[in-house]
Each structure stands twice: as C-alpha cells, then as structure tokens.
Design a protein around this nucleic acid. Structure first.
Lengths: 133, 133
DNA sequence: CACATTTAAGACAGCCAGGTCCACAAAGTG
DNA sequence: CACTTTGTGGACCTGGCTGTCTTAAATGTG
C-alpha cells in the first residue's frame, strides 16, 4: 500500500550510481557492490526500470545497463512509480482516504518527489546536504 | 518498515475527531463510525495510544476515551511513534541506510511531523487546506 | 559453432502491516 | 448481585513487500 517503500530508495541510489558513470554502461552486479544492495533484488528492480523506459539494458558478454536520458530529465516520482510498478497503486492516491489530513500530507510528499530529479540526488550524494524548500 | 503507514493516518484522524469533542470523552465505536475506520482495528490503535499516555480510557457502562492533554501539546511525531509502537522501528531511523539521499528525505518529513500538532490537524479539517513550509 | 558472460523471467520463501475474532476484565445500573 | 456496556488482551488470518534461487535467453569472443 504505502508506496514510499525501501524499494524506491534502492532504485534512486542505484540510478544515482549509474548517473555518475553516464553515459557509459555498468553491470548490475557492479552497482550492487557499490551501493551494497542485494544483487538478486536489484536485478528485479532494474527489470522494472527497463520496462518503464528509464534505463536500457544489453545482455551478454559486454552487456550492462545505461540511462536513456539525462539525469536532470528523470524525476524521482517517475522512479518511484517505476520501482513500485506491478503493485496495487503505482501512481494511485495512496491508501489514505481523500479529504483527510494524512492524504494531503502524502500528496505534499509526492509533489516534492515530482519536483526533484536524479541530478539533484547525484549532487546531494557529493555534498551530503539536503536542500529542500 | 516505512513508518508513514496508514495506521498513523488512522491515529491522527481519530485523535483529531476526539480533539473536536474535548474535553468530553467519546466511545471508540462512535469515533469509528465518524471516521469510517474499522472498529476492531481502531481499538488496537487506541490501546497503543493509551499505553503511550496520549489518551486515557475508562471501561464499562459510561466509559470511553479522552485526551490527556491539550491538542496543541501533542505532536504528530509523538502520535506516529505511539501508533507504530511494538514494531521493529518505533522511533528508529527508518529502513534506509544512513548517509543516503532517501534517508535524508525521510528525515526531513519526520522533522515536519515533529513540528506539527494535533491542533493543526483539527484546524486543517475545518479549512481543508494544508499549510506546510 | 562452442563457450563464457550477463540480463530476463518466474517460481518460491519469510516477514510484517493491516485487519478480524473471541474470551476476558472493569465499571456503572437496576 | 445480575446484567449490560465498553475497553483489554491474545490468537489468528491475509496480502504484499523483501529477498532468493533456478532456468532460460541474448550477446559477444575465439
């Protein structure tokens, strides 16, 4: 139900790792080592990111994954939706009933995700300081 | 894991409902009807809120629940911690690894919860407009 | 073409949040 | 004291998130 799960955090970290390497491609295994995310699960996440068109993959000997766009053209909300795809909500209105305070709180959260891009994350992980309104 | 679960949303709505009635006490069943939260589950939530000292309860014929403090002295973070108590994290640092963007993002929302009180929620549910920084 | 490499796909397992149910204890009423 | 009311406490079920494992399919190399 709650769409702001750890999976989204994994996806953002992994893509930020990949963005630093852009436009070259990386192995999923390599990303797993650098980010310390379990490889089998990270593979699953990348499957969804490929399906969503955020990254493209190439199998076999010199294979790997690569961003299809510039990091500043990929919103965190888009990553969230892709990482959580195949579940109940995707881009849904969360679990909270409409008109409630909690629903509005979640919406503001969602709005911030929509306003930030992968480029912001790459910048953050260098400076270790979060600049939010 | 993710501490911004639906349970916290339920707790906030229920307490806001109770705060509008303050300082009188209400039946849990009555709150369940008004908020449309499933009664058996709401009872569970109130057990934790009582244990946390946010509300006090009286059993039997003229029983019910009542706030122990003024709404403007109850922070939403406190409600969150109480509602999620008995689980892995409670007041923990979420599931995200420290130093990551995702962890910082969650922390900023935790700070917002800490800065808001039940009185703000009561005010919101009247005006239906969320005023966040 | 044989082979190693690397992602794709799907089945499977463990755990926890959300939610229900039922028996029990307290508290007032007659 | 009998009875009704109302919260307490515990067991229990269900579904989805997290994570693993195994078998394929694709892609380059010699």
């Amino acid at each position: 139900m709650t769409s702001y799960s750890q999976t989204t955090g994994y996806a953002i970290e992994a893509l930020a790792c990949l963005a630093r390497q852009a436009p070259d491609s990386m192995l999923v295994r390599e990303i797993a080592v650098l980010t310390e995310i379990p490889l089998p699960y990270l593979s699953k996440i990348f499957q969804r990111l490929v399906e969503a068109g955020i990254v493209e993959s190439k199998r076999g000997y010199k294979g790997g994954v690569r961003l299809t766009r510039s990091p500043d053209e990929i919103s965190l909300l888009e990553i969230n939706s892709a990482a959580e795809s195949g579940k109940s909500g995707e881009l849904s209105e969360e679990s909270a009933r409409p008109g409630t305070f909690w629903q509005a709180f979640h919406q503001s959260y969602r709005d911030k995700l929509a306003a930030m891009t992968l480029a912001d994350v790459v910048d953050y992980e260098g400076h270790h300081q979060l600049a939010m309104s």
